[in-house]
Design a protein around this nucleic acid. Structure first.
Length: 666
DNA sequence: TGCGGCGGCGCC
DNA sequence: AAAGGGCGCCGCCGCA
């Protein structure tokens, strides 16, 4: 398998961070500064500026013959490469020969960025820190709008560019390659990314101007309320002390507010959940604050909407046919293999949104410049429907019904867990049943218990979720709910322990044996990344826990491993962050990973069936099709999503796809 | 002035 | 012994 590693440095008038890879690589001002190439078979390398130097024939041949052309974040280099083909005689590379070393890092549970990966792996050739400075000087326009073409800096840039490929080679060799299936899933994700999803750019622009005006008004009110101490609703570090200093500790309500604002670690918060609790207590007559404080809290509630920035991203990331491309990251969540989303983050779009008619009504008002009520709140509820199907098309959206609540007992694979699955099979209301088994006649409590207690969490987990459902219960009652839920779901409690034991045994056996827990298997690869714990799921996909070992320094024997998302502080001597693994966490990883595998499976099937998937959100598939085929696609999508794969016999799956021209409630 | 840390937000 | 976790983006703020 010949791998040819490639890296581009470029310059452009386009703002890469704001506009994203796709718009950047297609921007007319974007051009190549240099390219470096590294042949992993022969260890030969080259770096040159294609504007001044023709690509050497020997490297042309290598590009033609390599099995894989590798780049770190290959979507970027692939996009730039097309400029090379058009302008500088680079040989074309078929889509399926591209390979991404960043994706390789992610399937290995190593941080995705080149410098972080090199640091976490402790490889010999670290990424050069000079890059950021050079990019600032050469890759973005100077103040007068022209580009800096200083020859010495350009020479430095070429050195840096070559260093990047050397580092990339190091990290590729320090980890395992993607399997064929992983590579092919990555390629599929790139096709979804290229397809993109259409946005209503006009609404995105209108929303920003309405928001700007409203934010000015809010700022003015804030200044008035706080005597100029606070000028923006996002100044948390000013707002909290301002409120706390104004409290009268002899007053019971004020003491109560301070307690509500105090976090476990002793710091203070006034986040949305806290505000909701405070305001509900006020409305119920159980809390009485001075007028200004109450008004300030209500104002924050009206003002802190994060949707404005999303409208901005929509506008700038929209390319050809108003479509935003490149939003999905294959295996973005290293602990679970879930996709993640970047740029216009499609995985956290505010759920609460307008029906189509109300949305269109508001859009018309905004086009006419008419005032709209409760601006920030209104705009945030317009976010989802600003995603719109292509001309003459519609979305068909299907989500799996409580997929994790089904996956968990299926993975545990015991007779008791099977009874839980029977409830789903029979269409019984699982939450009512759960409440009954806890000995409480309240479906909401059953629901929160089912959703929050499956992964070893206790009072904290239940209470955090309870707030989302407007439940506030005293601690002793929550404690009883937890105990009763665990008593009624012994299979789950046993599964947590079983998983932890199997993982520990696998580490101790140094890979000589496999250990089963429910429907997953643990083993260990001693030579991979300082010893890697492997969890093999029923679909044969793998979760990796790098640098995994048993630590005896604390009480008992604890499993610890490297965690990609914990970046050590700049002054830390540690290569990378670690985390303690325990049963509940591992069972959660398994469950999410299993569902992520199911989603990947269905993405493959959908493509074979010629269904265009434009987005997906963990348990939800968004297809786009011509209006006239919508019914048919809806039926097909249902069949695809409810089809039980051969490796998942007995898993009850349910999905009811619906049509919508604009994304919204379903 | 730029950068990283941190608090906060929203989703599954 | 007990434990909710998986993400990415934005904006402010202190530091260099």
């Amino acid at each position: 398998m010949n791998m040819l590693v490639l890296d581009f440095e470029t310059r452009s008038e386009c703002d890469l961070k704001l506009c994203g890879t796709h718009v950047y690589t297609h921007h007319e001002s974007t051009d190549i500064l240099c390219i470096s190439l590294y042949d992993m078979d022969t260890e030969e390398s080259v770096v040159f500026d294609p504007v001044e130097t023709d690509i050497p024939q020997v490297w042309k041949d290598k590009l033609n013959s390599a099995d894989l052309v590798v780049a770190h974040n290959a979507a970027f280099d692939k996009g730039i490469y097309t400029i090379g083909v058009k302008e500088y005689g680079f040989p074309p590379i078929a889509d399926d020969r591209w390979y991404c070393s960043s994706a390789q890092m992610r399937v290995n549970a190593i941080p995705a960025s080149l410098d972080d990966a090199a640091r976490a792996l402790g490889v010999k050739n670290q990424k050069s820190f000079k890059g950021a400075r050079l990019i600032k000087k050469l890759s973005i326009p100077q103040e007068d709008g022209t580009f800096n073409e200083n020859p010495e800096l350009m020479e430095e840039m070429r050195t840096y560019c070559l260093q990047d490929t050397v580092t990339t080679v190091d990290i590729i060799r320090a980890t395992r390659l993607m399997t064929q299936e992983e590579h092919s899933d990555w390629l599929l994700n790139e096709r979804v990314n290229e397809r993109g999803v259409r946005v209503d750019v006009e609404v995105a622009e209108l929303a920003q101007s309405y928001a700007a005006e409203e934010q000015d008004g809010i700022a003015a009110e804030l200044v008035k309320l706080t005597d100029g101490v606070v000028t923006k609703p996002t100044q948390h570090q000013r707002i909290k002390p301002y409120i706390l200093e104004g409290l009268d500790m002899k007053d019971e309500s004020d003491r109560k507010l301070k307690a509500l604002m105090t976090k476990k670690d002793g710091n203070f918060t006034l986040d949305a959940k806290t505000r909701e609790t405070v305001l509900s207590l006020i409305d119920a007559g159980n809390l009485e604050l001075v007028e200004e404080t109450e008004e300030l809290i209500r104002l924050l509630d009206d003002a802190t909407a994060t949707s404005v920035a999303k409208f901005k991203r929509m506008q700038h990331m929209a390319g050809l046919h108003d479509r935003v491309r490149g939003a999905f990251i294959y295996y973005g969540a290293s602990q679970t293999g879930r996709f993640s989303s970047k740029g216009l983050q499609l995985h956290n779009m505010k759920r609460d949104c307008y029906e189509l008619a109300d949305f269109l009504d508001l859009k018309a008002k905004m086009q006419q410049g008419v005032k709209i009520p409760d601006v920030m709140n209104t705009l945030s509820k317009m976010l989802r429907p600003t995603l719109i199907a292509g001309e003459g098309k519609t979305f068909v959206v299907g989500d799996w019904s409580s997929i994790e609540a089904r996956g968990l007992p299926w993975l545990a694979n015991t007779p008791d867990a099977e009874k839980k699955l029977d409830l789903f099979r029979q269409g019984v209301d699982v939450y009512v049943k759960a409440a009954e088994s806890i000995g409480i006649d309240d479906r909401r409590i059953g629901k929160v218990a089912e959703l929050s207690l499956g992964y070893g969490g206790a009072i904290g987990a239940f209470s955090a979720m309870a707030i989302n459902y407007g439940l506030v219960l005293p601690e002793y009652q929550v404690d009883r709910i937890v105990k009763n839920w665990r008593r009624a779901n012994k299979w789950a409690v046993l599964f947590w322990a079983e998983v932890e034991q199997a993982a520990k045994k696998a580490v101790r056996a140094r890979g000589k044996q496999q250990f089963k827990a429910g429907r997953v298997v643990y083993t260990y690869a001693p030579a991979l990344m300082g010893g890697t714990l492997l969890c093999i799921l029923p679909d044969q996909s793998i979760i990796q826990y790098p640098n995994c070992h048993i630590d005896y320094s604390d009480r008992g024997d604890n499993l610890v491993c490297l965690k990609a998302s914990i970046r050590p502080k700049a002054d830390s001597k540690d290569n990378w962050g670690t985390v303690r693994l325990w049963g509940g966490l591992m069972v959660e990883n398994i469950t999410q990973a299993f569902c992520a595998g199911l989603l990947r499976d269905k993405l493959r099937v959908a493509e074979v069936e010629d269904i265009d998937i434009v987005a997906h959100i963990h348990d939800e598939l968004v297809a786009e099709c011509e209006l006239e085929f919508a019914d048919e696609v809806g039926e097909d999508l249902k069949i695809i999503m409810e089809a039980v794969p051969s490796y998942a016999k007995g898993l009850p799956l349910k999905a009811e796809p619906v049509q919508m021209v604009r994304y919204g409630n379903h």
